[in-house]
Amino acid sequence: MQFIELLQSIMPMVLFYSAPLIFTALGGVFSERSGVVNIGLEGLMVMGAFSSIVFNLTFAETFGSLTPWLALLVGAIVAGVFSIMHAVAAVTFHANQVVSGVAINMMAVGLGIFLIHDWYGKGQTDSITQPFYTRSIPILSDIPIIGEMFFSGSYYTSYIAIIFAILSWFVIYKTSFGLRLRSVGEHPMAADTNGISVTRIRYIAVILSGLLAGLGGATYALTISLSFGGSTISGQGFMALAAVIFGKWHPLGAMGAAIFFGFAQALSVAGRNLPFLANVPNVYLVIAPYVLTILALAGFIGRAEAPKANGEPYIKGSR
């Protein structure tokens, strides 16, 4: 029974840590499936976190308890608009996609902190007054064992993230848009010959990744950090990128990987209270997600194949 108690105590925390990663990783899946590498996920999360916190601070009194939901939406939209920059560079200007992603990351942090300095006169905002609160889902949380494990003391955003993952799976594998998206990422020339606009699909995919990463950043800001500063988002975007690869570019796989990373993170925080982990130095739990990702890539945990045309700008007429 001890194991179940452990899961009961740790599961809400796992869901809480993994939600931002799930959203962002789904964004990564869309972008990379269309053949655009998106190292800029980190910067897009920064934009999402920044704009949701600013919105929340400014409009908390106007919208009351509706504020965090609207802030979530604003975070997604701002990051979506910001991601157009990556799309323009990577798709239209044939830029090196990794480099453009690095520029996005630098730009997002620079711009975010610059504006915070300009608007608030300091490098870190105050804490927001209208964050998300943990809730128990009615009825479902009354189920014995599972109810307490999965449906009580979590944020609604965690469940939305999981629903989004299922939706993304449906879109990518069961709709004609998804088929086009995948074909553009595997063999853009063949797709182009069949009358699919590579440019259009890639723009849509990159903007989708911006929206989702913004949602991820906003979720992180509104549930975990509750304020914005230079170090609010430090590495979650790269972690999400790892989840994309660990999940083999599949939305449900990415979700699974994100939950696993959340689990590792929850263990590294709660590990000290668990008898069988008390003697394990924390550092092993902290680096576990990264080491496992490398092992997964090296083919020790099943081979991870990237979409064929990932990272290649598509230049019409060239072979």
């Binding site: 200007f93 830029a95 520029a103 996005i104 630098m106 902190i113 610059f114």
Partner: peptide
């Protein structure tokens, strides 16, 4: 002027170098 202006300038520089095609 906030120091972060320089980070924006550097990001823009990389952006243009990366997009040298244009």
């Amino acid at each position: 002027v906030p120091t972060e202006l320089v980070d924006i300038v550097i990001a823009v520089i990389i952006f243009f170098v990366a997009s040298s095609y244009i």
